[in-house]
Write a protein that binds this DNA or RNA. Sequence first.
DNA 1: CAAAATTGTGACAACTGTGTCATTTTTGTT
DNA 2: AACAAAAATGACACAGTTGTCACAATTTTG
Lengths: 217, 217
Amino acid sequence: MPTETFLNLADEKRQTFIETALKEFADNNYDSASINKIIKELNIARGSVYQYFTDKLDLWLYLKEYSEIQKLRHIQSVDRSKYTDFWTYYEDLFIKGINFDIEKPLCSRFLYRIGYKESSKDVAEYIDNWKVTAKEIFTVWVDNEKNNGSIKKTVDTEIAVQFILSMSSSIGELVQTKYSNAIENNLASEKPLFTESIEEYKRTVKELVQLLKNALK
Amino acid sequence: MPTETFLNLADEKRQTFIETALKEFADNNYDSASINKIIKELNIARGSVYQYFTDKLDLWLYLKEYSEIQKLRHIQSVDRSKYTDFWTYYEDLFIKGINFDIEKPLCSRFLYRIGYKESSKDVAEYIDNWKVTAKEIFTVWVDNEKNNGSIKKTVDTEIAVQFILSMSSSIGELVQTKYSNAIENNLASEKPLFTESIEEYKRTVKELVQLLKNALK
DNA sequence: CAAAATTGTGACAACTGTGTCATTTTTGTT
DNA sequence: AACAAAAATGACACAGTTGTCACAATTTTG
């Protein structure tokens, strides 16, 4: 938890701090991410960081929660009850996801790292929870969709979950690798050449979801 | 490349060295893996390591090559030309894979880390090559199997590759998470309770491959 | 058996990192 | 303006890392 001091900070200063820290933790894994680099980039004293957060882990946990909240806002706009078909829902979830990647690339990259690349022992316990949660959510989904007929009942739930989880990760990786350059450009320039990439991305997602549908329906 | 000195080492000593180093690099990512810990575990002097290898990266590269060769030996025994159906071939590949995980758990875990969890900048370039290679191999496969009718031609090759790659990673992760304890036990005790787990693993792989088949055939 | 080649050693330098804390600076309040 | 509270500072202690190198021990060779 951040201290009062941090929360009382001027909005712009606090935001700059978050962005810079987020960038460091998005570019490096937990062990390699360096508070030294953050304070040099921000031109602030070492002590300040420890007046805002008790330690490195505390900062990391805050950034994690911050990013998750940001992501949730994007995802929440996709409402399952508004879809008759599970698969178009799932599709839209990823297409909404790309908005998140464009608008909050740092959060996106940070969460991507947590989900699939982080391997530090210091944060291992907090990542396990995340994965278990994801699995639980997917399990509820799959069971529901089995009753709706979106997923055939002969498929084992656990295996279907594994399958969907793996696909989700795959789509995530797709964005991070294939479109990371485009996203970087989008950050730098005002009018990026990203619109066409989005269309390409949507096509890819649709085809991948179609394959998932073939497999499970 | 290791030095002559290392290659001239007594077989047992060299092997112990490899195993210990492998364990350190399997348990930690490149940055966190510590030569200090290795030499303490081995009870040898710091200087020795640098008489065997020029530096940390050199050691890592050797372990990578070593592990890849070990893996290749296991995989090579599965010969595509002996299978009329691609999917049973693909299935067997993973079932043979589990043998590798049991017999060479350190190599397996090390390679798993390289493939999916490593994110150190020092070794990034060597990992990219690995992934690109995997993609190339899968692309050739998919194109072949399209002609054989094992994969339908309407599916985009790149997307099919992405799909298969993701599944492969998923199956790999399955072993690492679900069976890692069992593998550890296998290392320690003489007669492990692992045989039943293997059967369960085989069933899971078969079901996952079946799903893949549904999706792509 | 002695000399030469090989292998082992561990203290050391040079970094980089985290977290602390007494002190100074800034801000807010009376 | 004077005082109090809050925030910023950066030198410091301590720990951990890699790679070096002069020297010691061991093995091989002539």
